[in-house]
């Protein structure tokens, strides 16, 4: 059963796309991640042009973040003020990111750049996750209490000016690192098609010392708006959002996520993180192989546009 993707300009098997969306949705529900960093490489493996994969990935993350953000909003674990400050940086970052994206595309280096970014990011995150979870598993075996990795001492971040009070998070923090973090994540959103939660959450906890309880909800709040904005900008500047592909992925994804959440609640945290770490590493490795393997044809043709 094939369906024609009007923007990617190729016919794909709808069952494969549905399966991809459901599997990534399942994983994102299980691990509490957006799934953008898995869906974009998978689409690239399935020969979707990286330009389309990234823009469509950002669109898909909008859907997967919304249901999570709503849940956190109902529970009161969402800091609107903190989220809004993050968002200011995020929107600026996404704007710069799309500009870099278009520039790399004109240079003919976009595909390479996306792959390298993914290899570096997935490799680092996957290795860290695996290492951390293996250590936790070893400790658990020895019946040792894990040291709490949240020392109360302040770091350089807390000496910056422009301090703001975030009531919900019960924190008094400079706006500079918050905007800066949002900015960096915004760039990643538009170049890689990810929400960036897998970087933002650890950065908020370890770097900004924001209470863990509000971190996930607040990051999701920011992700919704940055990915929605990125979708708009990509649609306007690069015409690369595939609405058919995005819709199939979103519908399969939100359903898969529901089952993922249920399974995730039954598994133990360390095992879950080790599994995710392995998966992330595998995806990164597969992309790395693509970079070094001799291509079938060293020449390629692109129609339209001037590129000096």
């Amino acid at each position: 059963m094939t369906v024609y993707l009007p923007i990617a300009e190729l016919s794909v098997n709808i069952l494969i796309i549905l399966g991809m969306g459901a599997a990534v949705g399942f994983l994102s529900g299980m691990f509490g991640v957006g799934g953008g960093f898995l869906i974009t490489p998978l689409l690239i493996f399935y020969n979707i042009p990286p330009v389309v994969a990234v823009a469509t990935g950002a669109n898909q993350v909008v859907a997967s973040s919304i249901s999570g953000a709503i849940t956190h909003f109902r529970r009161g674990t969402l800091d609107m003020k903190l989220g809004s400050v993050l968002l200011v940086g995020g929107l600026a970052g996404a704007t710069v990111g799309v500009w870099i994206f278009s520039w790399l595309r004109r240079l003919g280096q976009l595909d390479l750049f996306i792959s390298i970014l993914y290899v570096v990011l997935l490799g680092t995150i996957g290795a860290l996750m695996l290492q951390e979870s293996l250590r936790a598993m070893r400790k658990a075996k020895q019946n040792q209490q894990l040291p709490l990795r949240r020392p109360g001492q302040h770091n350089w971040v807390h000496r910056l000016p422009l301090k703001m009070r975030f009531k919900k998070s019960k924190i008094y923090l400079s706006a500079i690192p918050v905007v800066g973090l949002g900015f960096c994540i915004g760039i990643l959103t538009s170049i890689m098609g990810v929400g960036g939660g897998f970087i933002m959450v650890p950065a908020m906890i370890y770097l900004l010392r924001i209470p863990t309880s509000v971190v996930v909800g607040t990051s999701l709040f920011q992700i919704i708006f940055v990915t929605a904005y990125t979708t708009m900008v990509q649609a306007v500047t690069n015409y690369s959002v595939d609405i058919v592909l995005a819709t199939i992925l979103m519908v399969a994804g939100v359903i898969g996520a529901q089952y993922g959440v249920r399974v995730g609640q039954k598994l133990r945290g360390e095992q879950l993180r080790a599994l995710l770490g392995l998966l992330v590493l595998a995806v990164g490795l597969r992309l790395a192989v693509g970079l070094v393997v001799t291509p079938d044809d060293i020449y390629s043709v692109a129609v339209g546009g001037l590129s000096y």
């Binding site: 923007i7 669109n59 909008v62 919304i66 249901s67 979708t231 708009m232 819709t247």
Partner: peptide
């Protein structure tokens, strides 16, 4: 769809976001 994406990118992008919002909200 392809024509809409190229000729009315704003409306098209907005529709993409709207579908995502409806899907995400609907699921929740």
């Amino acid at each position: 769809i392809s024509d809409a994406a190229h000729n009315r990118p704003f409306a098209y992008g907005f529709l993409c976001v709207l579908i995502a919002v409806v899907t995400g909200w609907g699921a929740s």
